[in-house]
Design a protein around this nucleic acid. Sequence first.
RNA 1: GGGGUCGUAGUUAAGUUGGUUAUAACGCCGGCCUGUCAAGCCGGAGGGCGUGGGUUCAAGUCCCAUCGGCCCCGCCA
Length: 592
Amino acid sequence: MSDFLRILKRTHYCGDLNATHVGEEVILMGWAHRRRDHGGVIFIDLRDREGLVQVVFNPEISLACHSEAGRIRSEFVLAIKGLVRKRPEGMENPDLKTGAIEVMASDLEILNESKTPPFLLDNTAEISENVRLKYRYLDLRRPEIQKNLILRSRVAAAAREFFYQEGFIEVETPFLTKSTPEGARDYLVPSRVNQGMFYALPQSPQIFKQLLMVSGFDRYYQIVKCFRDEDLRADRQPEFTQIDVEMSFITQEDIIKIMERMMAHLFSVCLGKELSLPFPRISYVEAINRFGKDSPDMRFGLEIHDLTDILMNSGFKLFAEIVSGGGVIKAISIENGTSLSRKDLDELRDYVAQYGAKGLAWARITPEGWTSPIFKFLTPDEVAAINKKMDAREGAVLLFVADSPNVARDALGNLRIHLAKKLMLIDPEKLAFTWVTEFPLFDYSETEKRFVSTHHPFTSPVPEEIPLIETDPDKVHAQAYDLVLNGSEVGGGSIRIHRKEVQKLIFKALGLSDDEAKNKFGFLLDALEYGTPPHGGIAFGLDRLVMLMTGAESIRDVIAFPKTQKATCMLTDAPSQVSVEQLMELSLKIVI
RNA sequence: GGGGUCGUAGUUAAGUUGGUUAUAACGCCGGCCUGUCAAGCCGGAGGGCGUGGGUUCAAGUCCCAUCGGCCCCGCCA
């Protein structure tokens, strides 16, 4: 046996071999993906990160190799030397990238053995997530997941490339930082040196990047982890990565322009897709009214129509009462909805119930007119007005929600997405980018009984509306913008406040006393007094972006070592208990 | 904090109205085989049904509790 590793170095990746290598002697290192032992001849599909190639062990070429190859089992680690040759006539495998050729092994070393893996590493195998996460290092050998992480790496590299060329400076900001009010729950880190004190992991580098603008770095970016201790979803992890950007001496328009170019660069370099610029824009109010969400999916229609005016004085008491109680009546129309059965409609009613909707009325438009449980309550004029407003044609099904404005919005906003998936109205090739602009500066929080920032407390109001902050905070607009792709918020940013008086006004409107503001954000207020340039920025969720670029169904499929929905790691078993000694050092005591 | 769903060999699943030794496929082990590529053929091993209670003559099937995966609501500046 030859001395692989030290003397015989790898010459190629398995998946990179093709007909141009015919006649070359190659050295490959990889894993035994599959073994087909014919007794006389043994085929091994050798796998590395670039793909598979068939290796042939023939006793006529090397008896010793053939004999050793008989020991090979799934996931053994192999080094082989062999001649690339064109496969015999009729033996090509068109399903394999390297299927035109094969490697005739003349030398083999089993570098390591493997236990039988708990699951097949085939792309076809659907393995439950708990098993995959427990053996994540094996799951990550699967070509499908490797492909995702390789694309993720390309996206990050393309972003750095773009920012470098545009004169941005990458600056690292601290992970051990100060807990601040507002926003998500912080992950806390106890301080040993300062007993009883805590750092917080950053929810984003927001304040630091603004301070870098004060420092004159002018154009900053960072690809950085952020931490939020909130409950998880299919597209939400407690630690996630942002492409974080901040610029000085710019307007909202400037940021939008340059970020569109960055997005175009990423999609061109990483996916070979050319985006058409500029992206369309929609105001927050229009997005909510037409799509029921501030992150509208514009790949399909099913827009929401407001029928409140038509039905406010209706003889249908239920509708009239809801309207007089401050409610609204909204509806969507499904063209060619005849395939929807009564059972389907019941299922849709149950679907909207989870958003608090108390009912879902429907109407079918047949050649004879409406077929609907509510038809008898409506006047012909009302029916005609609804038909006209919704452009309802024969074959359509109308779905109505009469409820409080928020419930109607959420119910129908989510229903249209649910329907689009169910009725397969979404073109999977489509990339619908949209900027959402003109956000309100504040939202009223029913739970906290106060105004909270829609974006964050450092977002600049539209300058002309500053006087309204104290009188009509709900009427103030923010200089904020979100980038939405296929109904997912992939980025968001704003022009920041660079004047101390304005920042103080905002803190006051949020219910922060002068003392609290000074205690929590004093350093920022101080900094604003030392020549802060006008500035603004944006941050993109790298995980979500890559998820959309790869078509992954879960954020976990684009993260190497993700957490479960209970924020645990099935591989390492984190979080876990720590020793009493560790606690004592931190002057902590478990009280539960 | 709440709603839904799932948990049966290594994996993916089936398991009727509760009823003999709990099925299948793939994987695994052994044998045969020089052109397969989800190789084939023959043979074999492997689980007591997430866990703990309960009902019953009898529980994978029913009840209660509990643990865990996933999806969702709340939450996520």
